[in-house]
Nucleic acid binder design. Structure first.
Length: 706
DNA sequence: GCGATCAGGT
DNA sequence: CACACCTGATCGC
């Protein structure tokens, strides 16, 4: 829950997402999205009174947020004071003090936040510097790099302060399966159930809040089944959503609610009262969207978990994971950061310990900069993906300000495909904690870096490892051999004194994870054979996993018979889907929605579930290069379309496999001069340093490194 | 009577 | 585990 007070120190004349107390005197108001915890005081009599006596006070928000807000009669009195600003359109606003006449100009830009329909971040630019207020957000890794308006020319804007959604800013939320993965898992579950007979229906047990719409849209589009909801008048001007929801109860997908809907469900009744159709009783399963997360060492992600004979939980998150937050912030690299939310059980200090190292104010203070490697030069040019790498290595590593990816510039970014990047975690492995634990044995011992902020990196490695291990029991385990080899290397790295080239693999993984865009997946991959081999191994392993999952997923009407054995079921697998869905959110504006629809419409296949491929996004990433392989193996290659390619590119960073491959490749591509006066760090320390270097971060002397 | 706050539940 | 929300009890104006 947001505990942001409403004001940013740079521009105290505006209030954002808080409308009580001191905020009553603001010269302008901003609402990032329509969730109650960001609307405190918005309908209070005090504010209402102020509006009545003012012609100038306005509330700025996205067009979709305006629509949602004004649909509620409780907020109708705002009607003539709400100004909808188009997303990604810088707008000048004059902040006038009505009593003194004092005036201050500020430019604000709304950026898609991916949290719920209409959700945006606010970028303020004015005399006191550039400030980014994120509101609540869920952005995949690399997403920030694709936001043109966060850049000036080819570089990230100089941002003074970021007011950040830190809901999951705790290492225990290290990884949350990507939107695409989650969507696919749910899609397949719903598909498998609803296809049994027309009397098999699904109840999506969604909380009363905006944010599930993209799920409804995708299910409806993929399955041709509209979703039953209690109300849809708020979407009356959003045809893209409106088309996929209905108030007609005779549908197989329900997201309707009732004060005691759990009781309804237990009585084999939908919240809307439906219990049978044409005299035939309905067969109902419930799917409860819930946030599922995975620690650094646990990459297995079953996005669907069966919790009972006819109840499931599906992974779903409105907020960015720990690794996504770090990726976002490290890309922005502001001078200061202020958390808007205290993670449960966390403290401000704890959060700041995590975030500060990603800010300039902190980096500058840490003087010692370790430059053991000198300039790295990449021989190969990668066009597709971001050029971050180039930037990182060509420039001094000390400069932590990556440029905007070429991709963005070059590609007209037709539609959101680019956005689909989904790049979120792909690596997941599924696992049940048990499984993970059980199999983790050999490799894992990353004590060294874990402590550091970078742990994420390792994590990725681990994830792969985990996958392998987990999978190994499965039939296809052998296929992973090549893969496992890679793993072992990495581990060795950990254990022994790291060598740059060996390490770099790791880095890449990590980096990729953190900056998806940073690495051009496809271009690289294409070049080296090593990549392919690895990828193959990966894809194999993935494939296996997918098969397993699909099997487990399979639903039978008499599921009761062995559902317990399937408790850890999951569907997931890799998929290439894209990020169509994402776009939905992404652009808070209605336009965005439209674009989404268009995309989907044009590329229906995208949503299809593909059992093959490396784990999700990873697979995608690889896909560019490996695409042929994956496709070939799966035989579903055909489904991979332009989108996939795009996705892959964007995601490239994620796939461990790719990365690994790349790494191997890349290592040969770099020249590594020695630095004379550098101190000789301990192996573990060195490893951390490498990571940072690879991630384009400046080298700091931190305690964590120890 | 209303709103704010807290507890509890989903 | 969380989230965002609802309900109900309590308190204060």
């Amino acid at each position: 829950m947001s505990r942001f007070g409403g004001r940013v120190r740079e521009y105290p004349a505006v209030s954002i997402d808080r409308f009580d107390r001191d905020n009553l005197r603001a010269r302008a108001y901003f609402l990032s999205h329509c969730h109650k915890d960001h609307m405190k005081g918005l309908r209070a009599p005090a504010l209402k009174r102020r509006l009545e006596g003012s012609l100038k006070v306005k509330l700025y928000c996205s067009p979709v947020t305006k629509e949602l807000l004004l649909t509620s009669w409780k907020y109708k009195f705002w009607e003539h004071h709400v100004v909808a600003l188009e997303v990604e359109t810088p707008t000048q606003i004059s902040l006038v003090d009505e009593t003194s006449g004092e005036k201050e100009d500020i430019e604000v830009t709304l950026l898609p936040a991916g949290h719920c329909p209409g959700s945006v971040m606010f970028l303020f630019e004015g005399e006191n510097g550039t400030v980014l207020y994120t509101g609540d957000f869920r952005l995949a890794k690399g997403e920030a790099a694709r936001m043109e308006l966060l850049h000036s020319g080819t570089r990230v804007k100089d941002i003074q302060s970021v007011y950040l959604d830190t809901t999951f800013c705790d290492p225990k939320f290290y990884h949350i399966p990507s939107r695409e993965e989650c969507l696919k898992g749910i899609l397949e579950l719903v598909r498998s159930w609803t296809s049994l007979t027309r009397y098999h229906v699904v109840w999506l047990n969604c909380k009363a809040a905006y944010g599930y719409e993209y799920l409804f849209i995708n299910l409806s589009e993929e399955l041709g089944i509209k979703v039953h909801v209690n109300k849809l008048d708020m979407f009356r001007n959003m045809p893209e959503i409106l088309y996929h929801v209905t108030t007609d109860r005779r549908t197989q997908i329900h997201a309707c609610r009732h004060p005691r809907d759990d009781d309804c469900f237990r009585g084999n009744r939908l919240p809307c009262g439906m219990t049978c159709q044409n005299g035939t009783p309905l067969h109902i399963i419930s799917i409860k969207p819930s946030t599922m997360w995975f620690g650094e060492r646990i990459k297995k992600t079953n996005v669907i978990v069966r919790t009972g004979e006819s109840t499931y939980r599906a992974c779903f998150s409105f907020h960015s994971s720990y690794s996504e937050i770090k990726d976002f912030l490290s890309y922005i690299c502001p001078v200061n950061v202020y958390p808007n939310v205290l993670p449960v059980g966390g403290t401000e200090d704890k959060v700041m310990e995590i975030l500060k190292p990603l800010c300039r104010s902190y980096r500058r203070n840490l003087e010692p900069r370790y430059k053991p490697l000198g300039t790295l030069k990449r021989i190969h040019k990668r066009d597709l993906s971001d050029t971050d790498e180039d930037d990182l290595f060509d420039s001094e590593f000390t400069s932590a300000r990556p440029k905007i990816p070429k991709q963005q510039r070059e590609e007209s970014k037709p539609s959101s495909t680019g956005k689909s990047e989904n790049a979120e975690g792909n690596i997941e492995s599924t696992e049940s904690h048990k499984a993970t634990t059980t199999y983790t044995s050999p490799n894992v011992d990353f004590m060294d870096c874990e402590e550091s902020n970078d742990d994420d990196d390792e994590e990725e490695e681990e994830s792969e490892i985990n996958i392998v291990q987990v999978l190994s029991p499965a039939p296809g385990a052998t296929s992973t051999s090549s893969f496992s080899g890679v793993t072992s290397d990495q581990q060795e790295t950990n254990a022994d004194v790291p060598r740059w080239d060996a390490f770099f693999k790791c880095n890449k993984l990590e980096e990729s994870s953190e900056n998806e865009d940073a690495f051009p997946s496809s271009a690289d991959a294409g070049g080296s054979q090593s990549l392919f081999s690895d990828s193959d191994g990966v894809s194999d392993s993935t494939h296996i996993s997918s098969q397993n999952s699909s099997q487990s997923t399979h639903i039978s009407e008499q599921g009761s018979q062995g559902w317990d054995s399937q408790m850890d079921t999951v569907l997931i697998t890799s998929q290439e889907r894209n990020a169509l869905d994402f776009s939905c959110f992404g652009k808070g504006g209605s336009r965005a929605v439209v674009s989404v629809l268009q995309e989907t419409g044009s590329q229906p296949d995208s949503s299809r579930w593909k059992p093959v491929g490396p784990t999700t996004s990873c697979a995608d990433d690889v896909a560019c290069d490996l695409k042929s392989k994956d496709c070939g193996k799966d035989g579903e290659a055909g489904t991979a379309g332009v989108q996939d390619v795009l996705v892959e590119v964007s995601n490239s960073s994620r796939t461990p496999d790719l990365e690994l491959r790349r790494d191997s490749q890349s290592s040969s591509d770099f020249e590594i001069p020695l630095t004379p006066d550098a101190e000789v760090p301990q192996p573990d320390k060195l490893r951390c340093l490498y990571k940072k270097l690879a991630a384009g971060e400046s080298i700091l002397r931190e305690k964590k490194v120890s």
